[in-house]
Design a protein around this nucleic acid. Structure first.
Lengths: 339, 339
DNA sequence: CTGAAAGCGCTAACAC
DNA sequence: GTGTTAGCGCTTTCAG
């Protein structure tokens, strides 16, 4: 099985009776190439359909024009939006986008990183899976000269730039809103406090209570309640157990949806009996009845910023690491308006 | 800026006082390597963190373990699901996934293909943008030995395997259902008949009418009505113009949503006054009030099949090209139930 | 400004 | 079974 690899730099050199070095220089707009010669080379290349081999140049330079992106999963509105804008920015800047999903498995995430290192990517954009606690791999990547940037779910440990949402502020605003609507006992659905986003949202929850002079009841904190199913079941359990609560603030829209479904099924009224607020602003939250209050994370903007910053760090030796926090926007909807 | 490229095959050979060829053979489980030696090499590699350079082997073999995937955009439920399952299958099989979005621009799609060719991908998975009509690039890729497989939006021209939905059947079932519900004048919202999926869905529309002995009115066919905004505006226009119709079958859920929003805004009743059905089974269709009938495309399955078939063709010289049609599943919801 | 030449890390004849 | 060696296509000193 042969591969007609197409015309190469050597072919051009031979044809034009010049050296490969000159041809190479012409393509890399190296300063010292006589303009006419350069023009001639470029023209020849164009008419003959020359395509540079990124493998060869990558091997030679020890660096490629490709970036790896690692996310928990692509079929979540938040992440697919992010990937979409990351890819757009990277392509425009001449980079390829290698995509990897960890499926919330630390082992998969590790092997993804290894794969990316072997592929000689020049940068890695990552949002960690839940339960990740080692960053040996990330450090290895950094040591090999790969620029790493984190977003959304980040660690402080390996020193990298990152882009996150103002989770605390978003959560605080929502919970404040709930409290002002007269809800007094707000259940908090989250993933795990080892992950920054949940920790920060919890802080927002607590701050809102403090600001309103209301003592939060930590027995209303429910861990590992992020999926639709978990939201449904947890809501069922707390109602069945007769635990007193009058609202739910969930760190994810899918579990908020699960709660919504169970509450309706049970014949209770939203927002009158129970208020519901989620996080992520998944498209469906706008169309349920009642529509569900949620926190928009400015996905596209986040993707753009993270990609741009990474490129900056790759192309600019003296660029410094930065931490960007993007404001969240609370979408106030019917599920929390009972006044 | 140096790159500590890590330990290489040569280092191992030197250290173990054997030749690089043997080391290479050991890693590629070439038959003729003495088991003990092989074990020794693998062990050494492991403890010293050897990582093979995919660039080098790719350059040498003229082929890499990466696959390019081109889609219109990633932030559509259908495509993000597909990408998610494609990436899962490819990673498991040891391939990397390079993702490119055409954003419905033929030029971007072309340049994506070129990029993928330059990256020496061994395969391309593609769903074309609207309005694409040349396939010169695809043919070029095929000529260079790159396996190409199409899905969803496909061409017949360059002979490749493809995986599509049974669009005609899905559309036929929905329209049949509408007609049986007593709707008589069904508006048809679509993209362009040069794209297979719309053509096929139109055929389904027509067959359903034929089967019911009802003559379709082609003045109810509205082109380029796929976005939420277009769906909204088109619905407004046909109502304003007093065009008689009592149902809408849209090739996309977003335009169905636009129609839904306008109709509700106008104070008309769904499904009593106007029935609505969409295509794609976007998550929100389940939660609107009334919920919107739509056609599920079995996204994950499609992604899996397309990736598996591509791998088969890459790894198996004698594998033949095939066309797979996946059944669609109509999700009957409230927006079309008026009996 | 241009050319010659030395590899980047790996694979695959070809010898032994 | 194992070693030698010639590149894959490109970049980059080092000489002119």
């Amino acid at each position: 099985m042969k591969k007609q690899s197409g015309i190469t730099i050597t072919d051009i050199a031979k044809e034009l009776k010049i050296s490969v070095a000159t041809v190479s220089r012409a393509f890399n707009n190296h300063p010292y190439v006589k303009p006419e010669l350069k023009k001639q080379i470029l023209e020849f290349a164009k008419t003959h359909g020359y395509q540079p081999s990124s493998l060869a140049s990558g091997l030679r330079k020890g660096k490629t024009k490709t970036i790896g992106v690692i996310i928990p999963r692509n079929n979540r509105n938040f992440f697919s939006n992010i990937i979409s804008s990351i890819e757009e920015v990277l392509t425009t800047a001449g980079y390829n986008t290698l995509i990897c999903q960890s499926f919330e498995s630390p082992e998969k995430e590790d092997s993804n990183i290894t794969t990316l290192i072997n592929s000689n990517v020049s940068g890695i954009i990552i949002s960690h899976c839940l339960g990740k606690n080692s960053h040996k791999n990330i450090e290895e990547a950094i040591n090999k000269g790969i620029k790493v940037i984190q977003f959304d779910r980040v660690f402080n440990a390996p020193q990298t730039s990152f882009v996150i949402n103002d989770n605390k502020q978003g959560a605080k605003e929502v919970v404040l809103h709930l409290l002002k609507q007269g809800y007094k006992r707000i259940a908090f659905f989250y993933g795990s406090l080892t992950t920054n986003i949940f920790k920060e949202r919890q802080l927002g929850y607590l701050e809102a209570h403090k600001e309103m002079g209301i003592k939060p009841d930590t027995s209303l904190f429910f861990k590992n309640t992020l999926t639709r199913e978990e939201g449904y079941n947890t809501t069922k359990q707390i109602i069945d157990k007769n635990i007193k609560f009058d609202a739910i603030f969930s760190c994810g829209d899918y579990s908020a949806l699960g709660a919504y479904l169970y509450i309706k099924e049970r014949g209770l009224k939203i927002p009158e009996d129970i208020g519901i607020a989620g996080f992520a602003d998944e498209p469906f939250t706008e169309f349920t009845t009642p529509s569900i209050t949620s926190v928009n994370q400015n996905d596209k903007e986040m993707g753009r910023l993270v990609a741009e910053q990474l490129i900056r760090e790759i192309e600019n030796e003296k660029s410094t690491q930065i931490q960007i926090t993007i404001p969240t926007i609370v979408k106030y909807r019917e599920s929390t308006q009972r006044l």
